[in-house]
């Protein structure tokens, strides 16, 4: 202790010099962020306040900040839908991924690595193709529909694709690995001796799970839910392929405003609002859940 105090006393000037080092180390990253994050965001914010010019797709800067409000009110239904679908999909993914990650972490033995590869394996195939595959699975001539029809659980007039459940299933499926891997990471790191100790203290398996395993896996839950919710809220592929016109999410609106109507200001405003909305939600969530142990 004394040594530390002494050292800090004599080396103040040296420390001052050294304190530049972290900034130098950060410089490439900061430059990258400035170039590819800050600058585009500023452009985005600016584009959003433009108003139509002479030709199609031409806009002039008039600082019309009301564009933001117009965009928000114009697409409020899709905003609401995006967050609702993303929320349900996140819960669904959590419900599927937790037992899966738990099984891989504690019960898989020598198959652990194979199972982990299997979780990631779908990524070897295109996101779009995997989503289209769900269309086939749930489609009118697909196995699920046929089975449900034969069991008289649905009538021939119902359809599974082009529906809200299909979109949510698609979202939950597509982001499942993002939920599973952080969960596995947290669960796998739990010291088995802690679980043993819980048993020694007369906790049964369920109590151990509730009081020890779940709290210790919280960092994984927080990371997994964030990694699922954020991309799911901005996703438009699932709603486009598995949904119908009444299940469009905010991503679909941004896509259509940008490419179909070439209304760049509205598209920019919506993108910015989406980003802010997600940031606020994440901030509140992280505040509540705590991130001390998030890696």
């Amino acid at each position: 202790m004394a040594a530390v105090v002494r050292a800090s006393g004599t080396a103040t000037s040296e420390l001052k010099k050294k304190s530049l080092v972290p900034y130098l180390l950060l410089a490439p990253g900061l430059l990258w962020l400035a170039l590819f994050f800050v600058a585009p965001i500023i452009t985005l914010v600016g584009t959003a306040t433009k108003t139509p010019g002479a030709g199609i797709g031409e806009f002039i800067q008039t600082y019309r900040w009301a564009n933001y409000w117009d965009a928000l009110t114009g697409a409020s239904a899709q905003f609401g839908r995006s967050f609702l679908y993303a929320f349900i999909a996140t819960l669904l993914a959590l419900a599927i991924a937790y037992p899966l990650a738990y099984g891989i972490a504690f019960k898989s033995g020598k198959y652990k690595n194979i199972l982990l590869v299997l979780v990631v394996a779908p990524f070897f195939c295109s996101f779009i193709l995997r989503t289209i595959a769900w269309k086939q699975i749930l489609g009118q001539n697909g196995p699920v529909y046929r089975t449900l029809l034969d069991l008289h659980l649905i009538s021939s007039t119902t359809h599974l694709t082009a529906s809200v459940p299909a979109v949510i299933i698609g979202l939950a499926y597509n982001f499942l690995p993002f939920m599973t891997l952080p969960l596995y990471g947290s669960l796998e790191r739990i010291d088995p001796r802690v679980l043993e100790a819980s048993g020694d203290l007369y906790a049964n398996a369920f109590t151990t799970f509730r009081k020890v395993t779940v709290p210790l896996s919280m960092p994984g839950v927080v990371a997994g839910t964030l990694l699922t919710f954020i991309p799911a809220a901005g996703d438009y592929v699932n709603a486009e392929i598995l949904g119908n016109p009444s299940t469009k999410m905010i991503g679909n609106v941004i896509n259509a405003q940008f490419l179909n109507t070439q209304d760049y200001p509205t598209a920019a405003a919506l993108s910015f609002i989406l980003m802010i909305a997600i940031s606020i939600m994440v901030m509140i969530y992280v505040r509540k859940a705590g991130t001390e142990e998030l890696v």
Partner: peptide, 19 residues
């Protein structure tokens, strides 16, 4: 004309759920 194109396209996109 460009104004109508934008107006009608917007109206159509709204009807099909894109805004």
């Amino acid at each position: 004309n460009p104004a109508d194109t934008a107006k009608y396209a917007k109206s159509f996109q709204k009807a099909i759920g894109n805004g």
